[in-house]
Simulated scan of single mutants.
Amino acid sequence: MNAVGVDIGGTKVAIAVVETSGRILKEDVIPTDKSVAPSEMIDRINQKIEELIKETRMALSDIKGIGIGSPGPLDSKNGIITYPPNLENWRNVPIVQQVKEYFNIPVTLENDANAAAMAEKWLGAAKENEDFAYMTISTGIGAGIFAEGKLLGGSRGNAGDIGHTVVDPSYGQCPCGQYGCLEYIASGTAIARRGSELAGEELTTQQVFERYHAGDEVIKPYINDVFRIIGVACVSVINTLDPEKIIIGGGVSKVGEPLFKAVRDYVSQYALNPDGRKTEIVPAQLDQNAGVVGAAGLCLNQ
Rank of each mutant, 00 (worst) to 15 (best):
D168Q: 03
P169A: 14
P169E: 14
S170K: 13
S170F: 03
Q173S: 11
Q173K: 14
C174K: 03
C174E: 05
P175E: 08
P175A: 09
C176L: 06
C176G: 12
G177H: 11
Q178P: 03
Q178Y: 10
Y179G: 03
Y179K: 13
C181R: 04
L182Q: 12
E183D: 14
E183M: 02
E183H: 15
A186W: 00
A186L: 03
S187H: 00
S187Q: 02
S187C: 06
G188S: 11
G188P: 04
G188E: 10
G188I: 05
A190C: 06
A190H: 11
I191F: 04
I191W: 06
A192W: 03
A192M: 04
R193M: 13
R193H: 15
R193Q: 11
R193F: 14
R194V: 12
R194Q: 12
G195L: 10
G195A: 12
S196M: 04
S196Q: 08
S196T: 12
S196Y: 05
E197Y: 07
E197Q: 15
E197W: 06
E197D: 13
E197H: 12
L198H: 13
L198N: 10
G200E: 10
G200L: 02
E201N: 12
E202W: 04
E202V: 12
L203N: 13
L203M: 14
T204M: 05
Q206S: 12
Q206E: 15
Q207R: 15
Q207K: 14
V208M: 13
E210W: 03
E210C: 02
R211G: 11
Y212E: 06
Y212C: 03
Y212Q: 08
H213F: 10
A214G: 15
A214M: 15
G215M: 10
G215L: 05
G215Y: 11
G215S: 09
G215K: 14
D216G: 05
E217I: 08
E217S: 14
V218Q: 15
V218S: 14
I219F: 06
K220T: 14
P221N: 08
Y222C: 03
Y222R: 07
Y222K: 06
N224V: 02
N224A: 05
N224H: 10
D225A: 07
D225I: 01
F227M: 02
R228A: 00
I230P: 00
G231Q: 01
G231S: 01
G231M: 01
G231L: 01
V232A: 00
V232Q: 00
V232I: 14
A233W: 01
V235A: 06
V237Y: 03
V237N: 01
I238S: 00
N239A: 04
N239Y: 05
N239T: 03
T240C: 13
T240R: 05
L241R: 10
L241C: 07
L241G: 08
L241H: 10
D242G: 09
D242W: 05
D242F: 04
K245S: 09
I246N: 01
I246Q: 02
I247W: 04
I247Y: 03
I248T: 00
I248Q: 01
G249S: 11
G250H: 13
G250Y: 05
G250A: 11
G250D: 09
G250R: 02
